[in-house]
């Protein structure tokens, strides 16, 4: 369990942004999704999208917000995302679609989980930004967007 007290800073802060960008390239940023209704909490125990258990406490005059960096070192960072995780569910058709989609998802450092033969991508931006990266696969019909893109 990571016991975290206080907010290190905003992910948009210039100094933090550089370090986060570096960690992003090493696939070492973990997101702690906090429902909007829970952003007012000053104590929170929850799992990051990578499964790390975090026990978060804040001073009374502090509050969680989207982009709050709760932890950062040379190996990883924990960043708050407000709201429930948004996912894009992709379904490859056949071996060719699966191989190409898997290659691109890994190459693009997408956060994914597998559900049956579907690839569920945890979104950190607009869904269109993701589908644009695999447009040729979608155009060829070897990958389709199914279900719960939101």
């Amino acid at each position: 369990m990571l016991r975290l007290h206080g907010i290190v800073g905003d992910r948009r802060d210039h100094a933090l942004h550089h370090r986060l960008h570096h960690l992003e390239h090493h696939d070492a940023i973990e997101f702690l999704f906090v429902p909007e209704a829970d952003l007012g909490r000053r104590r929170l125990r929850a799992l990051t999208d990578r499964g790390t258990e975090c026990a978060v406490s804040l001073d009374r005059d502090d509050a969680l917000y989207d982009g709050a960096v709760l932890f950062i070192d040379d190996d990883r960072a924990v960043v708050v995302r407000a709201g429930a995780p948004r996912e894009l569910r992709l379904r490859p058709q056949g071996t060719e679609g699966a191989l190409k989609l898997g290659f691109l998802a890994g190459h693009l450092h997408w956060r994914v989980r597998f559900e049956g033969t579907d690839l569920c991508v945890v979104l950190d931006g607009a869904a269109a930004d993701y589908t644009a990266r695999i447009a040729p696969l979608l155009d060829d019909g070897i990958v389709t967007v199914v279900g719960n893109a939101n």
Partner: peptide
């Protein structure tokens, strides 16, 4: 998706 190795918990 590969999780990074866990570092020791930071002291509160």
């Amino acid at each position: 998706m590969n999780a990074p190795a866990l570092s020791p918990a930071t002291p509160a």
